[in-house]
């Protein structure tokens, strides 16, 4: 677990809940969006870096498991880790917990490609980033 980072913490607003009385699935995506942006600085991709070097990430694949509903007012936090990478992609494992009960509510594997934001083309990571990814990669295999 030591290579997982806390990447999101919040609570479930009433405005995020649907007629089933729980957080609608689209807002799990919002948690993932925040969490991915929390992971990027860990590999050197701070907001400044992304802006200045015009290199970013684009999600291309996502697997989801919804394991426990979140109700209005529930507290939640997400931890994330690098499940894998290639010279042009990273795959991140996200786990969203109900913070009050510590029960796993949702997990997701997201693969994102590294791309040039001006050319809109996929490009390879540099050696420094690949080295950082290797140091952060989870030691266990992850599958959903």
């Amino acid at each position: 677990m030591d290579r997982y980072f806390e990447t999101f913490r919040g609570h479930v607003l009433n405005s995020k809940c649907d007629r089933m009385g729980h957080m609608n699935i689209q807002f799990y995506g919002n948690c993932i969006s925040h969490a991915m942006q929390s992971i990027f600085p860990k590999i050197g991709y701070t907001a400044e870096h992304i802006k200045n070097r015009s290199k970013g990430m684009v999600a291309v694949e996502q697997q989801n498991r919804f394991r426990g509903e979140l109700l209005v007012g529930d507290l939640m936090h997400m931890v994330s880790g690098i499940a894998g990478f290639t010279e042009k992609s990273i795959t991140v494992h996200h786990k969203l917990y109900n913070s009050a009960t510590e029960k796993l509510s949702y997990e997701s594997l997201v693969t994102a490609l590294h791309f040039d934001m001006q050319k809109r083309k996929v490009v390879a990571f540099d050696e420094k980033t690949l080295s950082k990814l290797q140091s952060l990669k989870l030691q266990e295999e992850v599958s959903l």
Binding site: R9, G10, H34
Partner: peptide, 9 residues
């Protein structure tokens, strides 16, 4: 108490 973590959209 840790209470928030996220990004500015």
């Amino acid at each position: 108490i840790a209470g928030y973590r996220g990004t500015v959209d």
